[in-house]
Nucleic acid binder design. Structure first.
Lengths: 354, 354
DNA sequence: CATGGCTGTGTTATCGCTAACCTCTCCGAT
DNA sequence: ATCGGAGAGGTTAGCGATAACACAGCCATG
C-alpha cells in the first residue's frame, strides 16, 4: 500500500467515517493480512488463538460487516435459496415458509422470497431476477411453468424443488400432495356419508392449477358414482370469508336441493359455515360442508369444518431438506420425489356414515 | 484469451454445457466487446440498433442470465431493500409487504424479507446478515432495537425507515401510527358509549412493544375517566381465533360484571365475538367488543367487530416511497416522519352513544 | 543433522461485471 | 478546410473478498 486514497471525511466527528469498511481496514487495525482476517471471520483454516482474538476485537470495534457480495463472487458460493410462491396473503404460503426456515436455520442457507401473484409472466420475471443472484437452490410452487422458466431452471445448474403439487412432470425434485387425489378422496368421503346434491365453490383462477386439479379429481370421482356437481360458483378478490358467506347464500337460494357444499379453500368454507349457522341451517344433517387446507384458523370456528390437511409446513421442511442436502453434498442424487398424503379431517360438518 | 479452460462437458448432449455463462460468452457469440454487451443489457450508453439486436439475440439464444453479484460488486449498487419484520404469519405483515411491493415494483429496487420472531437477538442476527449484502435501504418494524442493532443501522450509511410505530426516537425516518394514541382513542370511544366494566385480552408478548403501548394508552385514558381495567388475560401460541374464544369464555365466567372486552388484535377479537354469539350474549347492548388492526377477515364475520385500522398497506407504501426517493436522489433530506392516523371503525359491536 | 510434516501466515490471481477513460468516425457549423 | 461534438464502441483498472499456493518456523523421526 503505497498510495493512500483520498477519503472524503465525514464532517461529523462522531460518525466514524462514511467510507464502508473493508477487510483491509480490519487487517490494518489488527496488524495481520487480509487473508488472516478473512480466515478468522469465517472460522476456517488454522489461526492462532492470539491472532484470532486480536482480529475479532478489531472487527468488533470498527463495527465491520463483511461484504457478502464480494465474498460470494470470490468463492462462487451464494448461500441463498430462492423461494418462489404465488402469494403471501394466502395463509398457506407463510406456513410453507415457516417449514423452510425451520430447516434452513440449521444450515448456512437463507431463503429469499419472490411472489408471482399466480402470473406466469411475473413468475418468469421473478425467477430471472432471483437466478441472477446465483442462488444455491430454488424452491418453486407448482409444476406448471412457462417454457422460458423451465429452461432457466434447467440451465441454472442448481437443485430445483417444485412444491405443493405432484401431479405432473417435475424438472428435478418435487415435494407435495396430489391435488387430484385430494379432490377424489373428498368426493368419496362425501358420497359415502350419503350426500347426493353437491355444489362447488371456488376461486376464479384459471392459473391456480392446484385448485383446478382438486376440482377435476373431485368431479371425476363423483362421476364414477354417477353424480354430477349440481351447482358451482367462482369468485375473485375481496375477503375470502365474506365471499364464502355471500356465495353460499346465493347458491343455496338458487339451488334449494343442495345437501353438500365443497369449498376450494378453508377460508371461504368458514364463511359458508358462518352463514349456515346464522341462517339456522342444520349442519351437517341437512347440509354438509367441507373445505381444503387444514388451516389453524378453523380451530376457533363454532363448528369444526371438514377439511383435508395439505401438510404445508411439512412440504416446506422436506423441500428445504433436499436443497440443504444437495448443497452440502450429503445428498448426491437428484430428482427426488416426495408425495405426502393429504389427511381427511372430518370435523363436524360431515355426517358420520353408518 | 489464449488459454482455454478445460470444461467438464456434460455427458448429455442436449444440455448446453455446465459452465455458467458469462458476459464473455455473449460477447464472443455476438462479436462485440463485453462492455458493449453490458451496455446493451443495461440499456445504458449509446449502442447502435443493429448491435443491440445482435447482442440481445445472442444473449437469448445462449440463455444468458447476468450475474448480479458481480454487477453489484463492480458498481457498488445493490438494488435490494432489506425489510425486517417480526413475523410472517400475522396477517398484518404480509399486508405491509404488499404495500412495499406495490411501490418498489415501479423502481429497480427489490424487497428482501427477514423475520425476527420478536426476538432482539434474532433481529440483530438478521440485520447483520442483511447488511452484509449491502442493501440500498432498510425498512424495519418498530423503534425498539438493541444497541448493537442501532449501531449497525447508523453505520450502514443507507436510508433506514422504522415502521408501524411512531412512539419513540427513530434512527432516521419513521412511518407509522401512535399505538399509545390508538389505545387512548379506543378507550375514550368505549367510555363514551357508556361501558364501564372493561376487560382486556392480549398476547403474552413482553417484546411486542406496539401491543404494550396500546395497552398503556388504553389504561391511561381509562384512568383519566376514573376507570380501571377490571380483568385481563394474556395468551401465547395456538390459533388466535380459538384462543380468543377460550379466553373470552374463561373471563366472562370469572368476571360476571364485565360489559366490554378490548382485544389486542382482531383475530382473538373475532374468536371472542363468535363465542359471544354462540353463547347468546347480547352484543353490543350487554357486552361490547373491540379489536385492533382492521383486517379484511372481519368483513365476513356475522357481526362486524369494532376495530381501529392500523393502515398497514399505507405504511408499507410510504416507507417504500422514502427508500425509493432517497435512493434515486429525488429526496435528499433524511429523518422524515410520517404519522398516520388510526381510524376507529365502530362496526356493530360498540353501542352507538346517543 | 537432514528430511518431512505440521502450523500459522502472507502473496497472487482471479471471480464477473462496470466506471472511467479513450479512440475513431462522421457530420454540421463556421 | 477546420473544428467541436455526438455517436459507437473498445481498453484498463478496479470492486472486496477467497482459493490456491508459497513459505517460514518448529517439532519429531530415523
Amino acid at each position: 500500500m503505497t498510495d493512500k486514497k483520498i477519503i472524503p471525511m465525514s464532517d461529523d466527528i462522531a460518525t466514524p467515517a462514511r467510507r464502508p469498511l473493508t477487510l483491509r481496514d480490519v487487517s490494518e487495525a489488527s496488524g495481520v493480512s487480509e487473508m488472516t482476517v478473512s480466515r478468522v471471520l469465517r472460522n476456517r483454516g488454522d489461526v492462532s488463538v492470539a491472532t484470532r482474538e486480536k482480529v475479532l476485537k478489531a472487527a468488533k470495534t470498527l463495527g465491520y460487516v463483511p461484504n457478502k457480495i464480494a465474498g460470494a463472487l470470490a468463492s462462487s458460493r451464494v448461500n441463498l435459496v430462492a423461494v418462489i410462491i404465488p402469494s403471501m396473503s394466502n395463509m398457506v404460503f407463510p406456513e410453507v415458509m415457516t417449514g423452510i426456515s425451520e430447516v434452513l436455520d440449521d444450515t448456512p442457507l437463507q431463503p429469499v422470497v419472490g411472489v408471482t401473484n399466480y402470473l406466469p409472466e411475473k413468475e418468469e420475471e421473478v425467477l430471472f431476477e432471483m437466478l441472477s443472484w446465483r442462488p444455491s437452490g430454488v424452491i418453486i410452487a407448482g409444476l406448471e411453468h412457462s417454457d422460458a422458466s423451465r429452461a432457466m431452471l434447467q440451465a441454472a445448474g442448481v437443485p430445483v424443488v417444485e412444491i405443493m403439487d405432484v401431479d405432473g412432470e417435475p424438472i428435478d425434485a418435487v415435494v407435495g400432495i396430489s391435488h387430484r387425489r385430494a379432490g377424489r378422496e373428498m368426493a368419496r368421503a362425501i358420497v359415502k356419508s350419503g350426500y347426493q346434491n353437491i355444489g362447488f365453490l371456488g376461486t376464479k383462477m384459471p392459473l391456480d392449477h392446484r385448485a383446478r386439479k382438486r376440482f377435476e379429481g373431485f368431479t371425476e370421482a363423483l362421476a364414477k358414482e354417477g353424480i354430477e356437481v349440481m351447482d358451482q360458483e367462482f369468485y375473485s378478490g375481496g375477503s375470502a370469508l365474506a365471499k364464502g358467506r355471500e356465495m353460499t347464500e346465493a347458491m343455496l337460494k338458487r339451488s334449494e336441493d343442495l345437501d353438500f357444499l365443497y369449498y376450494s379453500n378453508d377460508m371461504i368454507g368458514a364463511g359458508g359455515l358462518l352463514y349456515c349457522l346464522d341462517a339456522g341451517i342444520n349442519v351437517p344433517s341437512d347440509l354438509g360442508l367441507a373445505g381444503f387446507n387444514g388451516v389453524e384458523l378453523l380451530d376457533g370456528l363454532p363448528r369444526k369444518l371438514a377439511t383435508m390437511d395439505s401438510g404445508r409446513k411439512e412440504i416446506g421442511r422436506e423441500a428445504a431438506r433436499i436443497i440443504a442436502g444437495r448443497t452440502d453434498g450429503s445428498i448426491t442424487e437428484s430428482g427426488q420425489r416426495i408425495e405426502l398424503t393429504p389427511k381427511l379431517e372430518p370435523g363436524e360438518t360431515l355426517r358420520r356414515y353408518r
